[in-house]
Computed example of a mutant assay.
Amino acid sequence: MCTLSAILIVTPWAQGRKLYFGSLSEPTSEGPDLLPIHCCYSTVSLAAPNPCAANGGQGPCSHLCLLHHNRSAACACPHLMKLSSDKKTCYDIQSIRGLAVDWVSRNLYWISSEFDETQINVARLDGSLKTSIIHGIDKPQCLAAHPIRGKLYWTDGNTINMANMDGSNIKILFQNQKEPVDAMIIFCIKP
């Protein structure tokens, strides 16, 4: 059952896109070319099962439960998450842990995890030309850049590591440090 609250009348597209808003009690005199679209709301709810009702509105899904036209459910994930092979559980596709800026070459470096691999990435400051330059990092905590010397520094578990800014020449500077380990570079400029 539907109770009409208003009527929207639209002329055909070829006639110039006129809109008319009014209640059902108001007659129209625009001519026979008008197409009425009735706006209404339901006063009686349909009794149908909702597969998303359980689990606080998530149904069988870890995050988003969406209804299909046939009243079945489909699971979906928020931005930066992906649906696993069980079609119900979402997992992070990328987690960012560190950020460093090379103001000399105008590049941005960051540590990210995607699936089961953690790497150091680089891109232009506008986000273009993204590439991964260092792979196989285990427990990264932070990242620092020294653009004047062309070096990157990062912590991985209880080690402090260094590499060239293109990802080459990776070295462990210090190991067996007490956790947590952070890296920071302070620049002193002589007048």
Rank of each mutant, 00 (worst) to 15 (best):
M1F: 09
T3W: 15
S5L: 14
L8G: 06
I9F: 05
T11L: 00
P12D: 15
W13Q: 13
A14T: 13
A14W: 14
A14Q: 06
Q15Y: 14
R17G: 03
Y20G: 07
F21S: 07
F21Y: 15
F21V: 08
G22L: 03
S23Q: 09
S23P: 11
L24Q: 08
P27A: 13
P27M: 08
P27T: 15
T28E: 11
S29D: 09
E30F: 05
P32W: 08
L34V: 15
L34S: 12
L34K: 11
L35A: 05
I37M: 06
C39D: 07
C39W: 12
A47S: 11
A48P: 10
A48E: 08
C52S: 03
N55G: 04
G56P: 02
C61R: 03
S62M: 01
L64Q: 06
H68S: 12
R71H: 09
A73P: 01
C75Y: 02
H79W: 13
L80S: 08
L80N: 07
M81I: 06
M81H: 10
K82F: 13
S85R: 09
D86V: 03
D86H: 08
K87F: 08
T89A: 07
T89C: 04
T89Y: 04
D92E: 08
I93F: 12
Q94S: 14
R97V: 04
G98C: 01
V101K: 06
D102V: 00
D102Q: 05
D102C: 00
D102L: 00
W103H: 11
W103C: 02
W103V: 01
W103Y: 15
V104N: 14
S105V: 00
R106E: 15
N107F: 05
N107Y: 07
L108I: 03
L108K: 12
W110G: 02
W110T: 05
S112Q: 10
E114T: 15
E114M: 11
F115H: 09
E117D: 07
T118C: 01
Q119Y: 13
Q119L: 03
N121S: 12
N121M: 04
R124N: 14
D126R: 08
L129A: 06
L129M: 03
K130A: 06
T131C: 02
S132Q: 06
I133D: 03
I134G: 00
I134Y: 00
H135L: 04
G136Q: 11
G136T: 02
I137P: 01
D138T: 13
D138Q: 15
Q141F: 04
Q141W: 13
C142T: 13
A145L: 01
H146C: 07
H146S: 13
I148C: 06
R149Q: 14
G150V: 00
L152C: 06
T155S: 04
T159G: 01
T159P: 01
A163P: 01
A163E: 01
M165C: 04
S168C: 05
I170W: 15
K171R: 15
K171Q: 13
I172M: 03
I172K: 04
L173R: 08
Q175Y: 11
Q177V: 00
K178Y: 10
K178V: 00
A183M: 03
A183S: 11
M184S: 11
M184Q: 14
I185W: 03
